[in-house]
């Protein structure tokens, strides 16, 4: 773990919904170009934590947080941080695929257009490159004007990945990206995640432990808002350090 560069450093991070203390003193180092999985029973705070990494939680009223989340030596909760710029750098894939009710092309081009890329040729290039990266190009290249909503569930989710990749992020946050998909589509997404880590640092929330074991290099186990354990995935799944982790992994609760 030592030779890996840390991409996200979280220190003593706390999060509150109104009075509810949802995340308690979380600290972890997320390594660059690796897949880090967040697991735990539902309501344990893993999604809340994920959404704290690109400050999506800012959108929810009556929430507050303290502690630091450092991305590339910058504390993203610093007053002087621009949330919009942060989100360009830290992309997000949601649990339910949520393509815009627009064409495939316009979905992928949405981000670049916001960044004032207007030239058709450049946009074409970005769309193609992003769709290739999301392993969707071959399936849709002849039909880019088709509505994104006309795609199958698995394709929609890959479209969302392409859309996120198109703004050139460095980090991809994935919130149970395959939970609504059939096994075949899930396999495709998992293979894709494996390829994507070459270019991106990936943090993925999953409730599926086999999936965590298959795709991730590191795993954090959350329980009741606390981070119980964080280590290499291999270690977590073979010799967990804590009793609670072992119980969860062997299916005794959750």
């Amino acid at each position: 773990m030592n030779e890996l560069k840390t991409k996200i450093r979280v220190e003593n991070f706390n999060f509150y919904y109104d009075k509810k203390h949802a995340l308690k003193n979380i600290s972890m180092n997320v390594p660059e170009h690796r897949v880090t999985a967040l697991i735990g029973p539902s309501g344990c705070g893993k999604s809340t934590f994920l959404r704290s990494l690109n400050r999506m939680n800012d959108l929810i009223e009556h929430t507050r947080c303290d502690g630091t989340v450092v991305v590339d030596n910058v504390n993203i909760y610093d007053e002087a941080i621009d949330v919009v710029e942060l989100r360009k750098k830290v992309g997000m894939i949601f649990q339910r695929s949520n393509p815009f009710p627009k064409s495939i092309y316009d979905n992928v081009a949405y981000g670049p257009r916001i960044n004032n890329i207007k030239e058709k040729k450049q946009l074409d290039e970005i769309v193609e490159r992003s769709l290739i990266r999301a392993a969707l190009w071959d399936e849709v290249k002849d039909d880019l004007s088709k509505s994104g909503l006309a795609l199958s569930g698995g394709q929609q989710q890959r479209l969302c990945i392409a859309r996120a990749v198109a703004v050139d992020p460095e980090i991809l946050l994935m919130d149970e990206p395959a939970s609504a998909l059939d096994p075949l589509a899930t396999t495709k997404i998992e293979e894709l995640i494996h390829e994507l880590k070459e270019k991106y640092t990936i943090v993925i929330v999953t409730h599926n432990m086999q999936q965590a074991a298959r795709v991730s290099d590191f795993t954090a186990f959350f329980y009741m808002g606390e981070q119980i354990e964080f280590d290499e995935t291999k270690k977590i799944f073979t010799m967990p350090g804590k009793k609670q982790t072992e119980d969860y992994i062997t299916g005794r609760f959750g």
């Binding site: 919009v84 997000m92 339910r96």
Partner: peptide, 18 residues
């Protein structure tokens, strides 16, 4: 308009007005 669409747009780095 579903919240998911708003979040998708914001997560791509779009501003509120965009």
């Amino acid at each position: 308009v579903p919240r998911e669409l708003r979040e998708a747009s914001l997560a791509l780095g779009a501003t509120k007005f965009e």
